[in-house]
Every structure is written in structure tokens, then in C-alpha cells.
Design a protein around this nucleic acid. Structure first.
Lengths: 152, 152
DNA sequence: ATAATCCCTACTTAATCGCTAGGTATTCAC
DNA sequence: GTGAATACCTAGCGATTAAGTAGGGATTAT
């Protein structure tokens, strides 16, 4: 049930954008420096996020990427699905890309107990990821930094 | 967050064994016929399940595989981990195979908000899969068949 | 002896992952 | 208007993994 590095990197980069100050866009170079993600690879990831309208870009000398919406309006689930495809362990349990089981695998689609199980797993994952936004994560991170600063 | 076909096949085969009648072992050939799983591939999967002591085997003419424990004592989580590795999306969130994040990815291991999130996901998945046993699945399947028979 | 079975290892083919390379187009500063 | 910094785009590449296939050896009931 692994997350790819693409999914991992995308969430890291977006969290970075979510905690960045001011309206200035961050370049791939800057994002790469701050996160340690290989720049050219990150570039491709950012392009994908852009075509999904999660971020928007500005070209040229002071160009870069910024969030296309407020952090609270971008869920982790959306991003993970963009990078890694459906959350469900099996296509037959996917909401976003449902594929009915071939007959021999799931004799009765409705009564297939495995499908029911994978659906439960999908729902459990979606419950966490769709309800967590980058606004929430940014808040948690700021909170963690504050605690660290005061060394509580 | 896909399950491999190995994981899928293993659960199907074990469910078949869990609902099988009597103390007779089922051969790979029979299991393959009933589930549609390629026989030689299934053979390898059964060998893995055997070395993990989930099933046990008998060789020779009336040989085959049977569960090594009662269905209620085999959880889906155990089987999925055997076939697909840890349930956690990220190694840093795994219980069974924890790997600390390299410094640049998770500056403060404890306060890394992404690690916290992946841990929540892992827990959600484990909650479903570790609490569901093949005994439970077998019951659900019998129930479904019963309903079908009486066409409710 | 024979046939059915499990046991084991090796191979294969295709896809995917995790990048790297290298060009084009755009924008800003000077 | 030139140069540097950036985003945009496509191609390729090496390693790994997935999903099997192949084939032979060991064991057991008949």
C-alpha cells in the first residue's frame, strides 16, 4: 500500500507552499533547495499539479509556483489521487475509477465479500486523506515549530 | 495504494480454503479451477503462505493445502503484509518495518506532520485488515449465499 | 510402476519508478 | 535588446518489480 515518491514529493512541496509567507511564487529551484527533492523531477511534479489546477505558475525571471486555491481548499486526498491514482486497494472498490470485477473473480458483484472488505479499506483511507487539507497541515506545522521555539 | 495480484490471489485462495467443507486438502489445481488464478503462479503463492505457516501441505496423490490454523485465527492484515509488505504508505509510518526519515525529509521526526498523517492512514488500514479474519469473511460469504439461495 | 501432487529454481516479458538531459518559450533587469 | 532566470515540454534510461511461464525433482496413494 505504498505511496510513490511522486506522491510524497508533491505533498512536501505543497506543504512548503502552504507555509510560505506572502504572495511571492516559489521557483522549482527554491522548492528543491528547501525540500531536497531533485529539481528536474520536482519540475515534472509541479507541472502535473498545475494542469490539475492545484497550483498556478508564473514564468520568467521572478517566476515560480503558488497555490491556485487557499490551502484549506486543497485536500491531501486530491493530491495523492493525482499522483498515485485511486485510493482503493482494488479497482472494484474504487469510487473515482470503478471497474467491475470479471465474473470469475467476483461471481456476484454485490455479494463479493472481498470487494466489501476493500471498500472498507478505501473508505478508511479516504476518510483520513479527504478530510485533511494543506491548511490543516500547515497549521500543525506552525504549531510544532512554535512548541520547538519555546522548547516545551 | 494498490494491492498486488499476489495479495488479491492469496486472499481469494484462503477464502476458498476457509469455506471448503471437511478436512480434505485442496490441490493447487482445484484452487486454480475454482478461482481462475493461474495454477503455477498460485503454486508460488501457496508456498509462501506455507513457509509463513498460514497453510500446511500434504504431498502425493491426494495432497494439497489446508489452513494451518482456524480461519478465525488468520487475519487479512497478516496475509496482505506477507504478500505486499507493510501496510503503511511510508516506511516512516510503519509499525512492522519502521525506517526513520532521513534528516532532510523530516527535520524533526517527532513533529513531522506528514509522518503523522501517514501514520493515521496506516492505522486506519490496519484497523480494518487486522480485525477482519478469514473466519469472518467465510461467514459473510455463507450468509450471502444463503440470501441468494432464498433469493431475498 | 504410474499418476498426481507438492517443491524449488530459473527465466521472461512488460510495465513502472525515479530520475536525467536537453531543448524551447517567456519574462524581467539592465 | 541582450542576458539571465525561470517555466514548459519531450525523450530517454537504468533499475526494479509484477505477473507470470517453464521444467524438472521429490513424495505418496493406488
Amino acid at each position: 500500500m505504498k505511496l510513490s515518491t511522486r506522491g510524497d514529493y508533491a505533498t512536501r512541496a505543497l506543504l512548503e507552499l502552504s507555509t510560505a509567507e506572502g504572495p511571492i511564487a516559489l521557483s522549482v529551484h527554491q522548492l528543491s533547495d528547501r525540500t531536497g527533492i531533485p529539481a528536474k523531477y520536482l519540475e515534472q511534479i509541479m507541472m502535473r499539479l498545475r494542469s490539475a489546477q492545484v497550483v498556478r505558475s508564473r514564468r520568467g525571471v521572478h517566476g515560480g509556483y503558488e497555490l491556485a486555491r487557499r490551502p484549506a481548499e486543497i485536500s491531501v486526498g486530491e493530491v495523492v489521487r493525482l499522483m498515485d491514482g485511486p485510493l482503493a486497494p482494488s479497482p472494484c472498490a474504487s469510487q473515482s475509477a470503478h471497474v467491475p470485477c470479471p465474473a470469475y473473480r467476483c461471481p456476484t458483484e454485490a455479494g463479493c465479500v472481498l470487494r466489501g472488505l476493500w471498500t472498507d479499506v478505501r473508505d478508511a483511507i479516504a476518510d483520513v486523506l479527504d478530510r485533511t487539507t494543506f491548511g490543516e497541515l500547515a497549521d500543525r506545522q506552525r504549531e510544532a515549530h512554535r512548541r520547538e521555539a519555546y522548547s516545551i
